[in-house]
Amino acid sequence: MDSIIELKNVTFEYDDNDIKNTVISNFNLEIERGSFTVILGHNGSGKSTLAKLFNGLNKPSAGEVFVDGISTLDEDNEIEIKRRVGMVFQNPDNQLIASVVEEDVAFGPENLGLRPDVIRQRVDEALKAVEMYEFRTAAPHHLSGGQKQRVAIAGIIAMKPECIVLDEPTAMLDPKGRAEIVSTLHKLNKENGITVVLITHFMEEAEKADRVIVMNDGKIITDDIPKIVFSNVKKLKSVGLDVPQTTELLYSLKNNGFDIKTDVISIEEAADEIYNALHLEEK
């Protein structure tokens, strides 16, 4: 596998009043270049810690994390690692630095010391990619949550990263904002070939992913394509995940004696499943 991120026997601990807390231990994971991976887990499952290990914001206590083959412990390459693996956080308000959208997007490329005309071009491209170009001179505090989060994403892709890691980027957004972000990410993955690692506790955001990893207590409990992961609703619910209502319905029907699969999320597919199940019965 051509992997962009590789974790080898990683352990991460932190000190809390001299008590050592181990968040993850002996963790192995590879993220394939160009893939769209979703990491699901409830609050406190260790997924945020994991995300920060990806770009060296957290340094492993033992083991090593490689980005494009470079260890995150390599201090000479600290900036380059952060450029290659960009990161977007939950609260859009705490990620925007400048009070004009385009100047905020320029912040990353400016730090990289690029030529001003190159920066300009990258900022425009990045804003167009997240469909925020028309807001380039707006002030962030006049934008909606979803729009602010898209500006934050533009700020990352203006650095031309290989991979973008998002730590619960939709948790504070309304349904409209959430949908905007997820479709933007799929577009970036398909059209710009950027590897996406989306961390969330909304299962429906994983519907179109290439790979879904479910975390609990700092461990991977499932790692597969969405259909297979979603077919085990019981397991997902047991680790405190949000299950969409379509899945909930199919699961309840199954428990009530329906011969039905639970691995679909969209309304149309769910209706098909139920229709088929009712039809089978008639035969």
């Binding site: 209502q245 909930e248 319905l249 029907l253 004696g257 009712l278 019965e281």
Partner: peptide, 20 residues
């Protein structure tokens, strides 16, 4: 609600079963 939907579909299933 999911509960209502399950009730409704179960009764349809039973009804369908009887007809056939």
């Amino acid at each position: 609600t999911v509960d209502d939907a399950v009730k409704c579909l179960c009764s349809i299933k039973k009804g369908g079963g009887k007809d056939a």
